[in-house]
Design a protein around this nucleic acid. Structure first.
Length: 559
RNA sequence: UGGGGGCUCGUCUAACGGUAGGACAGCGGACUCUGAAUCCGUAUGUGGGGGUUCGAAUCCUCCGCCCCCAGCCA
């Protein structure tokens, strides 16, 4: 008999559980994830999906993937394909069907006529500016449109002619007749349909009137039998309208529940801003590894599992929050620490000559692919008289506690030998070119018979066997935690980090990496986790740094 | 001075009238053939004032601060 652990559910799951208990939806749980195909998905969508698909999964229900494609002016097939690929990569189960709001246009139209018949909707000839003017302000009520009291017959006739394409774009709209004095702006006769002579990516030129979000969304949910329509906080004010349409129509009525969207430090999370970064070439594309898009994170080397883990850890609530990106980094480090094979690579090489090592000799040392998982096996790394080590791993005049290589100091070359530095060779500009060292043959394999300790262990690559590579190392795209929080006259673009990309061209990797393929992930010892970029071509490997290793030494240095 | 939401460690989030807990970040230490991983330890929090109660983060009340809404975007 175990002690019963109290299960703590977030507020959404508590509401769903309550509906299940009372039998409100006949014991069903059916959610939906409704992206608009006007951009790529980002980590904020990953949170939304974690909730939408996660609630369905946890209660044995379903979650529909539904494209909310009601605005042909902004939407493209490219985006539906990209979004679908991202969702599949994340591993969410949307069954064997993809839903589209545009599939319901005919039904929505019929319901609109029904509302007109009920005297609950009317065709308005006011211009966009006039409508805005008539709407009033936050503190003053709006005024009724002069067209508000047209007869049902006239409204029906006009609406049908709208559909038939008799009017130019913007000439007329269909509005719900609710209350121009409502303190909730959304209820001041919201627009249901606008005229848009634009081809739609799925319906082509079948329509020239398109439904607005508020009108369409509840209908989509109703048609699909959604039980819980989960969305972000800004729709809280729209819920009365969501409910109003469904109630007026007298059709199946899901429950809308709102939660706080994700904000992450050092990045922006709006599709508008991400699009701008892409269009104005601040980044290389939607999948630039510095972007918080799913495609960007994937190219950066993040795993779907680490993103799912992150989404669970941040929780669900209604409080606006700004999550520390360190948590995301923790999640990917934890995942990759478990699964990434180890390898040695030198980003910024400096040559080491082991003077007392026989010329022409090569020894192959066995290196473990994972220190905690012997089942991942071993590989052989060639050692010879000339090696590369990391420029950072040598200092002529080291500070206290520096236990890497410096003149007179002995360090271990991982898996190989202890070496001691005796001479530093510089070029005419004072830049270190070569380090002359000696090795201790007794230290073969990395330990000595006398058991003496060395504080430093360095990674290395044999000059003669090295594989050349380009390595891209990234920093945050922005210099401040919240780039959207700017002073008068500034924009998020003013917070861009000019130094977010560092390209290391002449990197030297151990030869076992020669056959690595795009998407493969490794831990480069002492440096971090890296993944092979699709830019790689035969003979020119390109790696992205996913995330560095925790670096205690860097912290000590900062002090 | 309209309406809708929200305020718990630095950050995110639990606690649903009964010991304010976890995670990340931080700090200290152990271990280490990765200054990684791992292990151990540790500081920091209920926005403020009243009230109800044996007992309040939780209920009531007043105040403060933050977010959202005036698209023919979603």
């Amino acid at each position: 008999m175990t002690v019963e652990e109290p299960i703590t559910m977030d507020f959404i799951r508590q509401m769903v559980a309550e509906d299940l208990r009372t039998g409100r939806f006949g014991g069903r749980v059916h959610t939906r994830f409704p992206p608009e195909p006007n951009g790529y998905l980002h980590i904020g969508h990953a949170k939304a999906m974690s909730i939408d698909f996660g609630v369905a999964r946890d209660f044995g229900g379903k979650c529909n993937l539904r494209f909310d494609d009601t605005n042909p002016a902004k939407e493209e097939t490219e985006y539906v394909e990209g979004i679908t690929a991202d969702i599949e990569w994340l591993g969410h189960d949307f069954g064997d069907k993809i839903f589209f709001a545009s599939d319901y246009f005919e039904q929505m139209y019929a319901w609109a006529e029904m509302l007109i018949q009920k005297g609950r909707a009317y065709v308005d000839d006011l211009s966009a500016e006039e409508i805005r003017d008539y709407r009033g302000t936050l503190t003053e009520p709006g005024r009724n449109s002069p067209y508000r009291d047209r007869t049902i017959e006239e409204n029906l006739d006009l609406f049908r002619r709208m559909r038939a394409g008799e009017f130019p774009g913007g000439a007329k709209v269909l509005r719900a007749k609710i209350d121009m004095a409502s303190p909730n702006m959304n209820l001041r006769d919201p627009v249901m349909y606008r005229i848009l002579h634009e081809p739609h990516h799925r319906t082509g030129d079948a329509w020239c009137i398109y439904p607005m979000y508020d009108w369409a969304h509840g209908l989509e949910d109703s048609i699909e039998g959604i039980t819980h329509s989960l969305c972000s906080l800004e729709y809280e004010d729209h819920r009365p309208l969501y409910d109003w349409f469904l109630d007026e129509l007298g059709i199946y009525h899901p429950q809308q529940i709102e939660f706080a969207r994700l904000n992450l430090t050092y990045t922006v999370m709006s599709k508008r801003k991400l699009l701008q970064l892409v269009n104005e070439k601040y980044v290389r594309g939607w999948d630039d590894p510095r972007m918080c898009t799913i495609a960007g994170l994937r190219r950066r080397g993040y795993t779907a599992e680490s993103i799912a883990d992150f989404c669970e850890r941040i929780g669900v609530s209604k409080a606006n929050s700004l999550v520390d990106i360190a948590l995301l980094e923790h999640c990917i480090r934890q995942d990759l620490n478990e699964r990434a094979p180890r390898a040695m690579g030198v980003l910024d090489p400096i040559k080491v000559v082991i003077d007392n090592y026989p010329e022409g000799q090569v020894e192959w040392f066995e290196a473990e692919n994972h220190p905690q998982r012997p089942e991942m096996g071993t590989r052989l790394a060639p050692f010879s008289r000339e090696l590369y080590i990391e420029r950072e791993d040598f200092m002529e005049a080291p500070p206290r506690k520096y236990f890497r290589l410096y003149p007179g100091n002995e360090v271990r070359l991982k898996y190989a030998y202890y070496i001691t530095c005796h001479e530093v060779v510089k070029d005419s500009e004072g830049r270190i070119v070569t380090l002359h060292c000696t090795y201790d043959p007794e230290s073969r394999g990395g330990t000595t018979p006398d058991g003496r300790k060395v504080r430093g262990t360095l990674h290395w690559v044999s000059v003669a066997h090295a594989v050349d590579a380009e390595v891209r190392v990234y920093d945050y795209l922005f210099t401040v935690e919240n780039p959207s929080d700017v002073a008068e006259g500034e924009t998020f673009l003013d917070k861009i980090n000019p130094d977010s990309l560092h390209i290391f061209e002449g990197c030297k990797l151990e030869p076992s990496l020669a056959e690595a393929e795009a998407g493969d992930r490794f831990q480069f010892l002492r440096l971090g986790y890296f993944t092979v970029d699709p830019d790689s071509v035969r003979g020119h490997l390109v790696f992205n740094q996913t995330v560095n290793l925790r670096d205690t030494w860097a912290k000590i240095q900062q002090r």
